[in-house]
Design a protein around this nucleic acid. Structure first.
Length: 283
DNA sequence: GATAAGGAATGCC
DNA sequence: GGCATTCCTTATC
């Protein structure tokens, strides 16, 4: 949990600060207000003092991380896009912002796997219950048909999925984090974190009914090969004595070379984009 | 009351 | 046999 407070920006005596004029600032404040309505659980967005103090910084920033660090991945990405549009309408800077997004994705090794994910659900192919199917996974039942599903060329294994999520803290630190890598202990964050990971796992398996309970049931089995249960709530432990797990974990030192990681990363990216799109039209 | 953990059972590979 | 999943009950916050 992030506890650092915003550093207030130095106040300017001028109407225009670093290219930020009063009209633009007002529009930015409106966007923050709308975002606070869309994300009632986001405490940072509801801290009006913090929001006001950081508006100028946000308007000048071209780095998406500035937004996601402050407001979390979902709200941060949305705000980054909206602020880019704001600036674009005023300063014709939207092209540069989109280039930044593409550049970030390319750095993460995602650009070459973009086609591995299917943004729209295909309803004609029912998903087989087996976990080793090579076909595109599809939901078995859902009221939300707009979320992405994934196409994988290898068996979708839960422990690999969890390891991949743990190795992308920039996107998942609000949901699942390492407590001690050497010991293999990790933790799901309360409520939304566990739910989000379960939802993502459901997307991997084409099962929209996936729950945290179902996903983690095997984590809690004593004497399991890969996972050890913990006496703390939401805390589990990888068994590094299981060679395959340790080998896979070591391979994640160079994550872009691991296809499984790229698939998960791509899915997470699409997932957050879909969340943004879904929340964007319904404040 | 909501959420997480544990028990038992089933299906798939 | 091992993993994944579901349903249910119990414990914890």
């Amino acid at each position: 949990m992030r506890v650092a407070k915003f550093k207030p920006q130095p106040k300017s005596r001028h109407t225009r600060v670093g290219g930020v004029n009063r009209v633009l600032r007002m529009k930015a404040i409106i966007q923050l207000l709308k975002a606070s309505w869309r994300y009632p659980g986001n405490k940072r967005l509801h801290d009006s003092t913090d929001c006001m103090s950081v508006v100028d910084l946000l308007l000048r920033s071209t780095d998406q991380r500035t937004f996601t660090d402050l407001f979390g991945m979902t709200a941060g990405e949305e705000l980054f896009r909206q602020f880019a549009e704001l600036k674009g309408s005023r300063e014709k800077a939207s092209t540069a912002s989109q280039a930044t997004i593409l550049e970030n994705e390319h750095r993460a090794g995602l650009a070459d796997t973009e086609s591995d994910l299917v943004p729209e659900v295909k309803s004609s192919v029912p998903h087989s219950s087996g976990s080793s199917s090579d076909s595109c996974s599809t939901p078995t039942s859902s009221t939300d048909s707009s979320l992405p599903t994934a196409k994988w060329n290898e068996k979708r294994t839960l422990w690999k999925f969890i390891l991949c999520l743990l190795e992308m803290p920039e996107a998942m630190s609000d949901s699942i984090i390492w407590l001690n890598k050497e010991r293999g202990t990790f933790k799901f964050t309360k409520n939304s974190g566990s739910r989000k990971v379960a939802e993502l796992w459901g997307l991997v398996k084409g099962n929209r009914k996936m729950t945290y309970d179902s996903m983690t049931r095997n984590f809690r089995v004593p004497d399991a090969r890969i996972f050890h249960p913990s006496n703390q709530r939401l805390v589990y432990c990888f068994n590094w004595e299981y060679g395959e797990a340790l080998e896979f974990y070591k391979s994640l030192a160079n994550p872009s070379s691991v296809e499984y990681y790229r698939n998960v990363k791509n899915l997470v990216t699409k997932y957050y984009r879909k969340l943004q799109q879904n929340s964007g039209g319904t404040p």
